[in-house]
Each structure stands twice: as C-alpha cells, then as structure tokens.
Design a protein around this nucleic acid. Structure first.
Lengths: 205, 205
DNA sequence: GTATTGCTGTGATCGGTTTCACAATTCGCG
DNA sequence: CGCGAATTGTGAAACCGATCACAGCAATAC
C-alpha cells in the first residue's frame, strides 16, 4: 500500500527538522515538503489513528513516535543481503549504521573470495549457510542482489528459511506464496520508462 | 503510466525466449511468465495498436519490434550518471553494454580523484562541466546518485541543461517543472515498507 | 462575549486501472 | 463442410486510491 511509503516519507521529513521547529506541523506543511496534498496527509494520519489539534496541527514528536509505532517492529529487524556483486556491495555502506531499526546483519555469496570477511560491520557467509544463519539470527527481511538467473531459486530458499519480505533488485519475476512480500526494483525498466516519458514531454529538439 | 513498465517486461521476456519458441505467444503465456493477467496483456497490446491473430496469438518477433518502436527512441538515448559514490559506481557495470538503446555516456562527480578517467567505457567529468557535456552529447536522461542534500540542486541543473527525465536514487524530494519526469527509487523506504508487510503477513514467531 | 479565521476529520465524489465477460473469429477435426 | 475448442478485442463494471468540499472546532481579535 502506498500509504506506508508516504508515512516513511513524513517521518523522514519530521526527523530532519526535529528541534528546529515549533513542535508541531500543519498538514499543509507536511504536504508541501513531501510532495503530496494536505488532504492526503490528513487522511494518512487519520488512518493510523493519529489525531491532530484544530488550529495547531500535529505535534511532531508524537507523530514521529506514532509512525514509528505503526511501521517498525519494536526491536528492529535484522536484514540479510543476498548477493555481493557490485550492487550488493554498494548497498552495504548505504545502510551501515544509517537506520535505527533496519540493519544488514548477514550477507551471502557463492564466491569464496567474498565470504568469511566482515564488510561494513556485516559478516559475509557462503551461500550454503543461508538457512542456518537466517534461522539463527531470526531474519525476516532480505535484499536480493543476485543475477536474474539465480533470483527465483535464491528467493525460494529465503522464503523456505523463514524470510517474509524480499526487496528484489534482479530483473526477474519472483513467484512465491502470497505470505511473502516481494518488491522488485528493476532499474533497467525504470530507466526505460523515464526515457519514454523524457522523449514524449515537450519534445523540442 | 504502469503500462509502460509492463511493456518493458513483456519485451524482456520475449527477448529471453527468442529463437527457442514457435514464433508466437498467447496472451496467457505472456501473462503467466510476466506476473499479470491475460486480459491485461491483451489490453496493453491493444493500446499500443498491436494486433494478434485469433487462435494463433501474437507473432513474437513483430511484437518485440512493435514494443521497441513504441518505447524506444530510434537512435537510442545517451544517459548521464550524476554522482560516483558507491551506488553510482555500481550502476555503471550494470548498464555497460547491456542495453541496446540506453547507454551511460557521461558521468559526473565533484571529487577530482574520480574524474578524468574512463570507467566501464564511460568518461567521467568534473561536475562543473555538466551543462557543457550534456548539451554536447544531447543528453536527455539522467541517473542521479548524489547525496540527498545535493539532489535538488543537481536536478535543477540537469533540467536547466536540457535533461527531461531523471531517475533519482537520493532520498529526497525533487521539485521540477512538470515537463521533466522524475522517478525516485528510494531504497530505504522500499525496505521499510517490506519490513512492515513482512511483520504483518502470517506472523508466526 | 461574539465574530472571524483557519485548521482538522471525513463522507462523498472523482478518475484511472484492472478485471470481467462475451461477441467475433479462426483453426482442427470428423 | 460444419462443429467444437480456443483465442483475440473490447465495452462495461468493479475497484481503489486520491481529491474535494464542508462541518466542526479551537484560537485569536475586537
């Protein structure tokens, strides 16, 4: 659902301005800074049961807490990174320490040259130990950055090992039981789409 | 529009199986392999004006051509990559030679250590030369992988230089005239969303 | 105290996508 | 040739998210 993404965005903005503001925000401010309409902000906050105050807006600190309470697992979630190619290795520093609730705690690869070490505070295991480590660390969320040809198989093993959500960067269709959430970020397709619209909009060459 | 993405996906599948199949596909095959419904495939192809044959499906080679004709600019599009951090550098080999129509032909960074060389066949320029190079190479599409704080400014310069479509990886809201298409791929937010659904679906711990 | 302002909460509405469902068509087979 | 099976093309309906528009209310001004 799109609302979840917007809540994340609201939270990020609120955290950015934390301290430097009067302690409350109006729906129209949040909307403006976040690229949506004020009505949508109000509707979103209504849906998570967070009430503002007429004429005073929403108390920022409490709103951040409410969003966190709604979105996050209280203890935080350990995340597995599967595939240490260029993209996988780039993602490690992206998350290293940056997120209070989501931490990449285990990485996997088939290449023995890459396993055994610790990169950005994350231990790298051989692919074989996937089930074992995921069970041990109680991992429920994974990022998949393996080649397309290996994606479905890896995803299947992840799901079987107990993973319930996968962020897939491989340009491949992943088919899993509906109990597992899969979101594919296909960079090539996104770029093709953008090139398409770029060509259409106000073509003035 | 979502249809554009699906067309890309259809095409990819068709190219994967090119040769190894009887020369035509049914809507239900395409649907099955691509994760959508047969009706949607038919509707999508109808919308781009591609007709199939009753009982024989769609001629694959012609369909690939029709999709290409609809999606791609005939000569292909040069793409700029702005920001050579971890993610930017990971993206270069991703596209290097892999796509017939989209090629990253210029990269930019402020760090003089990174500029001046050629990585994966792509020349790296200092950030100052952005306008110049974009005009010279007639670049209309860009990938933005700079830190969030620099994103809006860089996007503004790109747009002013003539770029009409931006794939933004920075976790920041980009505000540009509507003639410029901006698509933000926010990895952190995608992961937060997945963690949210992972926690909800069939919570059996 | 009363009027005015301006913000929240939300029922109603709108617009775009997806899905349904079926007529039209073609092929294979007897 | 004509029947049955299978597939396309598409109008109509259903669905879903976003937007509108306004009632209700709290703060402030006078």
């Amino acid at each position: 659902m799109k609302r979840i993404e917007r809540l994340s965005v609201y939270r990020r903005f609120l955290q950015e301005i934390a301290g430097s503001e009067p302690g409350s925000v109006y729906s129209h401010e949040l909307a403006e800074k976040t690229g949506v309409t004020p009505a949508q902000v109000r509707r979103d906050l209504m849906e998570i049961g967070f009430a503002g105050h007429t004429k005073k807006g929403y108390r920022s600190a409490e709103l951040v807490a409410a969003i966190g309470n709604y979105l996050d697992s209280p203890e935080g979630d350990p995340v597995a990174l599967v595939g240490l190619g260029n993209l996988g290795r780039a993602l490690l520093p992206f998350f290293a320490g940056h997120h209070p609730k989501l931490k990449i705690t285990a990485a996997f690869d088939t290449d023995p040259l890459k396993t055994g070490r610790v990169i950005c505070g994350c231990r790298c295991y051989p692919f074989d130990q996937l089930e074992e480590v995921i069970a041990e660390e109680n991992i429920r969320v994974a990022i998949l950055t393996v080649p397309a040809a290996a994606a479905q198989k890896a995803a299947g093993r992840l799901a079987a090992a107990g993973v319930r959500g996968i962020l897939n960067f491989a340009p491949a269709l992943i088919r899993l039981p509906k109990a597992v959430t899969v979101e594919t970020m296909d960079i090539t397709i996104a770029l093709e789409k953008i090139a398409f619209f770029a060509r259409r909009s106000g073509d003035e060459s």
